[in-house]
Simulated assay, not measured.
Amino acid sequence: MLGAAFCVAAVLVVVGLASTGRISGHPRTRPTGDAARGYHLPDPAEGDRIAAGLLGSSPAAPSGAPMPPVPTESSAAVEPLPVSDPLQAAPIAPTPAIGALLHAGEGDNPAHFCTATVVSSPNRNLVVTAAHCVYGGAFASDIAFAPGYHDGVMPYGVWVPSRIDVDPRWVSDRDPAYDVAFLQVRRPGTEDRIESVTGAEQLSFDIPPGRPARTVGYPDDQQQPVGCQNTTAAFSDTQLRFDCADFPDGTSGGPMLTDIDPANGRGTVIGVIGGYQEGGDDLTNYSSYFGPAIAALYQRASAAEVAPTT
């Protein structure tokens, strides 16, 4: 991402590498996992510690406590998505399946740095975000996902990754065609599947440009998401373009949604903020095009079942 408000350089001590994009600061990383093959299996004990620390510092719903209801109704209709006027992101209400990626930071104080989305999958525990949010020379080692995050509250609990999948071509040279990651997640102390708790957005591939879409993200200096509506366009064979201003640091990984059901607010993810310039500039957002390569990554992440750890 270019410009003072949209470009952040996070020095990764592990590898001496700087990363840019709509990401407010990289979490700690460790050179573990099979990076050459594009996947990582985080340490369950560390995940449990991270979740406990974040829950202890936030008014999140504790394990087993009632959570806000998730809409279950659906309709055959598709919500009209008129173009935002002005073309500028504005605060919107949080939704259960979209949330903030957190890293524990010093003293386990929560700080959100990217955006992620629960997507439908056979294992019912999959989240999509941008690859540059979770791999910057090494896999992130201290992250968690808070679906429906707002005002420091984690209403659907804290979920930590049990597996992270990125394309090996992102690992080898940060190719913007592959700036997408899938995370299998678990809620420590339970056998819950996140899709059963929050619901899930659908995921679609090979969708031609020119679709009305809503893009959503969590700015790092705000405590609720922002959104904007426009029509997607092709930037290149591997990049989707979405023109709208004011998606700053922290919105990386946020979904581009189309075909939104008015009965439940859920739609279909056709991109995530990332790709070219790792997200865009102060007027334009990009996404790696969800074509065959991203579909193959999704299939790999879905097939690699990781049992919840309780």
Rank of each mutant, 00 (worst) to 15 (best):
Q229E: 15
T238D: 13
A35F: 08
Q299I: 01
V185R: 02
R241S: 13
A293G: 03
A97W: 14
H26V: 03
V127N: 02
V8P: 08
S57M: 13
N230A: 15
A146F: 08
D259S: 12
Y218Q: 06
S252T: 01
L87A: 15
F113K: 00
G148T: 10
G105I: 03
E73K: 06
V15C: 13
I92C: 09
H103C: 07
S252Q: 04
A233H: 12
A304K: 12
R124V: 15
A263I: 10
L17T: 11
N230H: 15
M154V: 04
Y218G: 03
Y178L: 01
D151W: 09
Y298G: 00
P82C: 06
T129K: 00
S57Y: 06
D173N: 10
V171G: 06
I143C: 04
T284A: 09
A61I: 08
E201P: 08
W170E: 03
S58G: 07
Y135W: 07
T232I: 07
A4L: 13
F247D: 15
Y178S: 02
R211S: 09
S196G: 14
G271R: 11
D206N: 15
F242K: 12
T310Q: 14
Q202W: 07
T72G: 11
D165Y: 08
G254R: 01
D34A: 05
